[in-house]
Design a protein around this nucleic acid. Structure first.
Length: 200
DNA sequence: CCTACGATCCCCT
DNA sequence: GGGGATCGTAGGC
């Protein structure tokens, strides 16, 4: 866990900068979780972002303090988890490698398949027990826990998934050649828009 | 392998 | 009344 000041500074940047920097971190909720391997960035100038049209009832956490959670319900069924960054930008958590509390995750997800246990934004919230009650909560306090990465991994970037606007913006980031991301690497391996991202 | 579709809720237009 | 930062399953090739 980081000191409060360091933690705040880390998230007080645009999500497009923070999103690749989160790849390789460990993230836990009540001790359950694993390694972040896929993220996406959304910001206020971005037509695909919930914050694009300004403050509203359902996106208010996105306009809150950097370093807090923005949890929203999608399609009336699932929950998605974001890390709030500066100026109403946020990092969508899209996939993690299950490390701790695997049995509990398998029970919540009703599957034993490790590859698909947390390979999607709504799968991982179900596995980690994230729901609307955690919307707006500071990420630097219980039940959340972070472990920064020890070295900078090789990261790929490409177009974001499941959006209808600003589809060409390449703000999806993933750990290169990792099988736990939400879309299989086999499908993407010959893709023309696959490229490596230069990280700090 | 791929595409299509239904489930289900709430805010916004 | 529309539509969404999704998922699982069904069915075709």
């Amino acid at each position: 866990m980081l000191e409060d000041k360091e933690f705040k500074a880390f998230f007080s940047r645009d999500a497009a900068e923070v999103a690749p920097d989160m790849i390789g971190w460990n993230f836990f909720v009540n001790g359950v979780g694993g390694t972040i391997v896929e993220t996406e960035a959304y910001n206020r100038l971005d037509p695909a972002s919930h914050s694009f049209k300004g403050l509203s009832k359902q996106n208010r956490s996105m306009f809150g303090s950097p370093g807090c959670a923005y949890v929203y319900r999608i399609y009336g069924l699932h929950w998605c988890m974001n890390f709030v960054c500066s100026d109403a930008s946020a990092v969508l958590l899209r996939a993690i490698v299950p490390i701790k509390g695997v049995q509990q995750m398998q029970e919540r997800r009703r599957t034993n398949d490790l590859i698909t246990l947390c390979s999607g934004p709504a799968k991982l919230t179900q596995a980690l027990g994230i729901a609307g009650a955690l919307d707006g909560v500071s990420l630097n306090t219980s039940p959340f826990e972070f472990e920064p990465r020890q070295q900078i991994p090789l990261i790929s970037c490409g177009a974001r998934i499941g959006i209808s606007r600003a589809v060409e913006v390449e703000w999806r980031f993933w750990l290169s050649d990792n099988p736990f991301v939400s879309r299989s690497s086999a499908r993407r391996i010959n893709g023309s828009n696959r490229r490596h991202h230069v990280s700090r």
